[in-house]
Design a protein around this nucleic acid. Structure first.
Lengths: 144, 144
DNA sequence: TTCTTGTTGTAAAAAATTTTCGATAAGTTT
DNA sequence: AAACTTATCGAAAATTTTTTACAACAAGAA
């Protein structure tokens, strides 16, 4: 299963950096995984409050998961950070403006872009952040 | 002059949306224009405090300038928003990890990327946000 | 079990952002 | 210029967001 693989990967990732994969960390990640449109930190804190998880833990965990590559942020219309679950590695969010759903896509052709920019500017390019916006097939159908 | 043109453009832009181009708005924009590495909102507020401009005004003005396309944000290492001066229109920040300097570049090849993604995902793609990171020529030289 | 160390939640503190409102300044009309 | 109208401003207060401190707790090792 998709989900169990991610959990196993997470456990290993935390172990690697000498940290424990606690039930809180697990539940917080699962909350994000259950929301394809992502959550802000305060929404996430709200979402696990009933479970007795404090907001301090949410802040800490979101930071850790982000560093491990298991969460990445996108911007909603207000420029606010919204975190979405991924499975490590480098990919880019394709955000639907209609329903907010996020599809992670990989970056073909970006290394070409790096080289192009390097030649034109003299910079040594070593990274990028890309978000793509549009309308998903479902929302297209819904509107005719 | 570069600077005067921008000021003239700004005056016109504010007029167009029925707002006044006050000395505060001007000074705030000029502060950003004088900092190629950009400023956070609190840095900007700090920078104009001696001039008697309150932080409330800075918040309001940064929002306006951003909507007008005369400021755009990038992320520093902490994921914090840093605003940099531009001259309207769509461009992408190339950020030096060494000195923080930002070069605005235009987006060649991105419409091709849009089409590619559209074909692969079924999304109608209509926009993107791209930040590129690297090391500028000066910082390369400085390190040998 | 005992020891050691990382993790958690609560409460408090600090920082960032927004709201409210009377005073002021800019642009218009007379 | 004077009177008028309206956007804008800054200070203070309120709210929200994020961080810090610390005692209790939980997990793994010996």
């Amino acid at each position: 299963m998709e989900h169990d693989e991610a959990i196993a990967g997470l456990r290993e990732a935390f172990q690697t950096i000498g940290k424990r994969f606690t039930s809180q960390r697990r539940r917080i990640w699962e909350l994000f995984a259950a929301h394809p449109a992502g959550l802000t930190i305060s929404e996430a804190a709200e979402g696990v409050r009933d479970g007795g998880i404090g907001h301090t833990t949410v802040y800490r965990t979101v930071k850790e998961l982000t560093e491990l590559g298991y969460l990445q942020w996108v911007h909603d219309r207000d420029g606010e950070h919204r975190y979405i679950a991924g499975r490590g590695g480098h990919s880019h969010p394709l955000v639907c403006r209609g329903c907010g759903r996020v599809l992670l896509i990989d970056c073909q052709g970006m290394s070409t872009l790096h080289k192009l920019i390097a030649v034109q500017t003299g910079f040594i390019v070593d990274g990028h952040h890309l978000e793509v916006f549009g309308t998903c097939p479902d929302c297209q159908a819904r509107r005719g």
